[in-house]
Design a protein around this nucleic acid. Sequence first.
DNA 1: AATGAATGAGACTTCATTCAT
DNA 2: TATGAATGAAGTCTCATTCAT
Lengths: 200, 200, 200, 200
Amino acid sequence: MDKARQEKRIVDAALKVFSTKGYAETRMADIAREAGMSYGLVYHYYENKEKLFDAIVEDWWAGFYRELESLKESLVSTDEKIVGIIYYLLGVYEDKPDQISIFVTEVSRGFVYHAHSKGKSKFNRLFDLCREILEEGQKNGSLRTDIHARYLAYVLLGSIDTFLSVMVLGGEKMTPSRKRRISQGITKVFLEGAVRKNNE
Amino acid sequence: MDKARQEKRIVDAALKVFSTKGYAETRMADIAREAGMSYGLVYHYYENKEKLFDAIVEDWWAGFYRELESLKESLVSTDEKIVGIIYYLLGVYEDKPDQISIFVTEVSRGFVYHAHSKGKSKFNRLFDLCREILEEGQKNGSLRTDIHARYLAYVLLGSIDTFLSVMVLGGEKMTPSRKRRISQGITKVFLEGAVRKNNE
Amino acid sequence: MDKARQEKRIVDAALKVFSTKGYAETRMADIAREAGMSYGLVYHYYENKEKLFDAIVEDWWAGFYRELESLKESLVSTDEKIVGIIYYLLGVYEDKPDQISIFVTEVSRGFVYHAHSKGKSKFNRLFDLCREILEEGQKNGSLRTDIHARYLAYVLLGSIDTFLSVMVLGGEKMTPSRKRRISQGITKVFLEGAVRKNNE
Amino acid sequence: MDKARQEKRIVDAALKVFSTKGYAETRMADIAREAGMSYGLVYHYYENKEKLFDAIVEDWWAGFYRELESLKESLVSTDEKIVGIIYYLLGVYEDKPDQISIFVTEVSRGFVYHAHSKGKSKFNRLFDLCREILEEGQKNGSLRTDIHARYLAYVLLGSIDTFLSVMVLGGEKMTPSRKRRISQGITKVFLEGAVRKNNE
DNA sequence: AATGAATGAGACTTCATTCAT
DNA sequence: TATGAATGAAGTCTCATTCAT
């Protein structure tokens, strides 16, 4: 359908502008110009700026949840699930850095206002899914149980978020080797800790 | 001096409003009302909205740097320095939750746009200071050396940031016992890792 | 012809929407939706919103004039002609309340602007026709001559207009008995006056 | 106070523009220009276009009610009260024709939509006050009782309304002699009826 | 120092109308 | 005939900032 095509044009343009200037500084006219159409047409497809933004964010969450659910259900080890989460996010950064950028800035940081308790529940679901994966690790004996799984989730997700933020900030390109390196870095520290072991 | 007193009134009001509504949604009139003065007077003390915001942020960074520098120079163990960073931030949350809220949302967010290469360098200095502390730990043999100290800094700061974010999001109160618990949680995972040890 | 059929669909829809929301608040899209067609098609039959509105109004005036001319020419008494005018308008209210509603609101009230000197002349013709009927009554001795027939027309038409307005406002249904009652009320006061007579 | 002065400037300008172009066609910029100020200032005093309009309308109703209440309570004859109503409205037309124009066009029109049940109740109160005055006339024997006082009110108010409408439409000036003539015309027909009497 | 009236750039959005299909 | 995507003029309103008092 042509409608889908146009919506994609708009969303792509919006992704670009939102990620560059931020929600507040983004003008509908910017998006239209970026998409190569009149702003009237943007309104033809999206009721207003907020709805357009929400559509993008919704898309982000949907993909993230899907991945987390799928990882949760998969039969691999907890370690591999953790690596899976990291790889997924680094992969999105590789494919759609704009989306990550928006997540890192507008969503992850902006959730406080808009008090869109909406946003609040989105995050809780994210933390819950991650927590459940880690809880499973605690149950099967691979993760320590003296720390609440929710705390573990905060450390894991916070670490990834900071790596992504730094890359967004520096406008860094993602490469397979960097992906491996970052993934190993986070995984090692998260799992083994920062302390030096005797056998090092 | 009376000037200092007025500026404090303004900054306190700004802190409250910025943290509640975010930079973009904050009106100068809101701040003036909160401060109990006319908005003309706000302009008498602060050139414009951005300068006022910057003053707050500057204050935040100054305090944070001071703490990190002081920790860096202190003679305690690396472990204690790490705990020091965590306690400092949780302490600020306790005393001035608005400031933390602004940091978590506006500062880390805003530095991406505004291209405030200004903001960028602020963050780099933060990461650098933290990295130096951790590097010292690597040198004195308490931290593993197979992971770049900068990566360790990301994990540590990212973890703290997420804890703070969650508390800001939930509007949670800080208590001494919670401070201890969170600090221990982060420290344990960061230092020892999430993996279950034999001796557990 | 199919054309006439489509035009009727459009006019009926327009009648409904204009009477409900008023000219200014009516959207071409509303009319198209009400008519069950695309708005492109509406433009196929009517050049633009104003022309469509004018068509409706023109229709109204044409019917009204036809009735007044016919009454004027008829051989019945002046009293009966007056009753005829009232019955005609109440009858339209019964059949096409939307048309009356538009008349009462947009036409009768809106004539001032649109400065459509067009509208102005429409009204003058209405008042003239009514005046002529009443003048005939003055000539044949049934109506008083110490008051200008134009004034008499104002009183008569103004009274009817207010009754219609009130019914439109209240969304009241018309019934034969109500029609008779209203007609008698207006006629009596208009002809005999509101003053109490000895023989009451 | 200066505030009152500015509000008057705005209201006067609004009165002029609204009465000339109608509510829908009036631009806030027109009003500001007419008032000789920036449109930002208009918004400083009136929240938005609707509120500004309402202020004008409210003022109109307040004056009208005040007059009707005062007439109702006064000790003069019913005839004189009727003349009082007519004179009041013609007087307003003389002093502030714009206000009458707005009443005749926007107010009586607009109350149908917006269903501002607000507007509806305004009209009902008007009809009620007028009806009460006429009811008193019925009780004291000066007005016929075989017609409901509410009907009498419709005829009286409708007649006046049409006279005013015609004058607004024609942009006619009011003079004392015309005031007398119109007043007598309406009064005579309303009280004595249009029918020729033997003693004429 | 203090007030808040005044300004106006500029954002969002609406919607009549056109036109390719 | 029929559709609805596409356009863009134009309107409402916001709000940072200035400035007379």
